[in-house]
Design a binder for these strands. Structure first.
Length: 516
RNA sequence: CGGGGUGUAGCUUAGCUUGGUAGAGCGCCUGGUUUGGGACCAGGAGGUCGCAGGUUCAAAUCCUGUCACCCCGACCA
């Protein structure tokens, strides 16, 4: 290898090892670690969300919350513990969650015969409490008390909380035993109203992930097999991440009268007759952070959509000689102040000056790995020329642009929006490039089969194909290929066709993919 | 819960077959040179080898038990 080739190879070195194309799951873990988002805790399956990761979640929370408020919802808080008997009220619901429930059975500890602490046998609860895996039943119990007349409806409430689902296999953000989320729970007078609510909230989710997270999705309805336990209808938004698998980014459930009958949510109607309310629930979780990571990040680490980045601009003062320090820091502070005079989506951009005494390269790479949208270097040479060196996270690491300081400050909101748009368009182009219509069984199987079975390469994607509507056909594909129907797309056109599995007639295409 | 594997410093690990003072890299601390792309030199701190028991003059190493974690299956926001 010649010297120039060696240099070239060194330049191609990526901040994250392995690269996405080498080992996607491992790459994901390394990105989380390198960006300092979260780590595993000593508690099995539970994670510690570190400030940078939590900052992203806080931004999502704040922005989503505003959208809930704007659609008439208010926040409230319900207990962490659910009496076991509540969960039992809805048959398919308890069946759906029974296998992953954490259960509280005692209320006191004592020193046992072996000298170790143990739950005191005398302090056993008469009725075990389940740590909420979701709150339909406990919230339903409250709604049953609150609703007396049709005038009390609708009840439009959201809660931000943690829930626990004792999962076997966990992965940071994507699947953890405890996770943070929001769950909206509404009760309505009519079926129509409840269905409209379900649609409205799915639309809120779709808008949120598109405009704030730069995530394009397919929206649609889940099949019976994939439906939420106890729901009449589950709607979902499905995103494609960079290994071409699908990830469910949010769900909105129409619960019919199943839960109102189970919890006794009754009201006196306009006609003077007692009726059961029509309820909905909808949720989004910290899994969105995982979605975001797999959606936009590259082989140098995290790439954050500006709208949810905890820091928009990081200023890196370059101080080669001690005597230049004061002047450079002063300029950095001035630049930060100028940027903060601008407005990006109703607020001044978040600016950080990294004054740590670290090697410049190390410092710069740290921020690359953390995914900060804009990096700005300012050093003695810039002071002379009145410029700054600007680098965008969505562009190449070396694509540095020198701009006059004031001009740059005024352009920050525009650059941030350009990055936001670019990330969305990139994600959309990727998804569309790997979404196709398939009409033959052979092609379908080939599409979802890795060429190298020992070490599966990134393959497959989304397929729109006909389905006869039966659970058997769905099951067969799941067993053969681990491919499932992600949704029956909302905008699917009526179209004659033959089921990809059975060959029986079908009236429209559904969306298939491997999923998280 | 079935099958397989691993526990040694904050992290990654060597040493175990054949018992004899616990080693390295990264990270961390101090001082200096550096800082516009992943720096270098010198010095330093840090380990009851997962836990309990056994064999032995002697155990990270051999034996028994136990706990935890990881990988593969069934379940999943």
């Amino acid at each position: 290898m010649s010297e120039s080739q060696q240099t070239q190879a060194a330049n191609q070195k990526t901040a994250i090892t392995p690269r996405r194309d080498q080992d996607f799951p491992e790459w994901y873990q390394q990105v989380v670690k390198a960006a300092d988002l979260a780590e595993n805790s000593d508690v099995r399956g539970c994670m510690v969300i570190k400030p940078w990761g939590y900052g992203i979640w806080e931004n999502m929370q704040r922005q989503l919350d505003a959208m809930f408020k704007a659609t008439g919802h208010r926040n409230a808080y319900f207990p962490l513990f659910i009496p076991l008997s509540y969960l039992e009220k809805e048959a398919s619901h308890v069946e759906g969650f029974a296998k992953e429930c954490a259960v509280v059975t005692h209320h006191r500890l004592e020193v046992g015969p072996d000298g170790k602490m143990r739950p005191a046998p005398s302090a056993q609860l008469t009725e075990p409490l389940v740590v909420r895996p979701t709150s339909e039943t406990i919230i339903g119990a409250s709604y049953a008390k609150w609703g007396q007349s049709y005038r009390d409806l609708p009840i439009l409430i959201n809660q931000w909380c943690n829930v626990v689902r004792w999962e076997m296999r966990t992965r940071l953000f994507l699947r953890t035993a405890e996770f943070l989320w929001q769950e909206g729970h509404t009760a309505h007078e009519t079926e129509k109203e409840a269905r409209e609510e379900t649609d409205r909230m799915l639309e809120v989710y779709e808008t949120f992930v598109r405009d704030h997270l730069a995530v394009p999705v397919y929206a649609g309805e889940k099949t019976e097999g994939e439906r939420f336990a106890g729901a009449v209808q589950t709607q979902t938004i499905e995103a494609m991440v960079q290994d071409r698998k699908a990830i469910q980014a949010g769900t909105s459930h129409f619960l019919g009268q199943n839960f109102s009958k189970a919890s006794g949510i009754e009201f006196l109607g306009r006609d003077g007759k007692k009726e059961f309310a029509w309820t909905t629930s909808w949720g989004m979780s910290t899994r969105l952070v995982g979605t975001l990571i797999m959606m936009h990040s590259d082989d140098d680490g995290l790439v954050l959509p500006p709208r949810v980045a905890p820091t928009h601009v990081v200023i890196l003062p370059i101080i080669p000689k001690e005597e230049t320090r004061a002047a450079v820091l002063e300029a950095a502070n001035k630049l930060a102040a100028l940027i903060r005079e601008e407005i990006f989506h109703h607020a001044p951009p978040e600016v950080e000056i990294d004054t740590r005494d670290l090697n410049g390269g190390v410092k710069s790479w740290e921020w690359i790995k953390k995914g900060v949208p804009i990096r700005v270097e300012i050093g003695p040479r810039d002071l002379e020329k009145g410029t700054v060196a600007v680098t965008r996270r969505d562009k190449g690491v070396k694509e540095k642009e020198f701009l006059p300081m004031e001009e740059f400050a005024s352009r920050v909101p525009g650059i941030l929006q350009a990055i936001q748009t670019n990330l969305y368009e990139r994600a959309l182009a990727y998804r569309d490039a790997h979404t196709r219509d398939i009409d033959t069984t052979e092609e379908f199987y080939e599409f979802f089969t890795a060429k190298n079975p020992d070490r599966p390469e990134i393959h497959g994607g989304f397929v729109r194909a006909h389905w006869d509507g039966t659970a058997e056909s769905e099951e067969k594909i799941k067993n053969d290929l681990k491919v499932t129907i992600r949704c029956i797309p909302r905008d699917a056109k009526d179209e004659e066709g033959r089921c990809i599995v059975s060959g029986r007639p079908s009236r429209r295409r559904v969306l298939w993919a491997k999923s998280y």
